[in-house]
Design a protein around this nucleic acid. Structure first.
Lengths: 120, 120
DNA sequence: GTAACATATGAACAGTTGTTCAATTGTTTG
DNA sequence: CAAACAATTGAACAACTGTTCATATGTTAC
């Protein structure tokens, strides 16, 4: 059985020149890479993921979000602050309450695609 | 200015009945939710994200992956173990080397969609 | 056999993360 | 005004994460 690759150097250096050169092109620019991982990390927490889901179609006040995601209002408020900083959610104050809403069209698509992946 | 919502109860209970009922339907089943956040969390780490990118088109040995993503071989090996456990990568041994490759079509789509999002 | 190498693995560690709790702010209502 | 309520904030804390370092495993070449 003949080898599919041709290794040509030693430790610390590139072992498979052609493959490595091709692969290098696949890596995005540092800032894109950072934004990407930040976005995914955002959705990597179940609480935030649920918040995104419930806020996708309508605005909701903090208490209702808390009830829906099964977390304390404080915990939700902390998460919303992060999501607000990332410009993922918009908010609107009305009297005692603050209504939050998802302010990013792409997120829903991302979750939908992810869900299709999970469903195998 | 008339209120857009009609609050009707107090603390701990639902404040906006209709919105909450609609929102509740948007939350996926617990196992789907968990799978989703796990997948996103996976991509939420820059090292793993880069590994996915470089392994999308061709297989590579651990040393070359390490060189490409700028991490020690040990660090990469640890991450590959996790990714292997998640059935995200497949591997093939050939002599001294182990060649890894992305074993999940959806991941690339997910990253591509994410990248489009980052680019605004 | 030994030496060199590629990879894997375990323990330890620092850094980060998400929640809780208590206190605070700001608003509405009586 | 005070009481009730919605939301926010900061400190503290436990849990988790990713890396490093040292060591181990397994393969190839001499």
């Amino acid at each position: 059985m003949k080898p599919r690759h041709a290794p040509y150097t030693t430790h610390g250096t590139v072992l498979h020149r052609r493959q490595v050169e091709d692969a290098r092109r696949a890596i995005h620019a540092p800032d894109v890479l950072q934004g990407l991982s930040q976005t995914f990390k955002m959705l990597g927490d179940e609480t935030r993921l649920k918040i995104c889901l419930v806020l996708a179609r309508q605005e909701l006040c903090v208490s209702d979000i808390a009830g829906l995601v099964g977390m304390s209002e404080s915990a939700v408020s902390h998460q919303l602050r992060i999501m607000k900083a990332m410009r993922l959610v918009a908010y609107r104050r009305e009297g005692k309450m603050t209504y939050y809403m998802l302010d990013d069209d792409h997120i829903e698509d991302l979750i939908r695609l992810g869900a299709r992946h999970v469903a195998e």
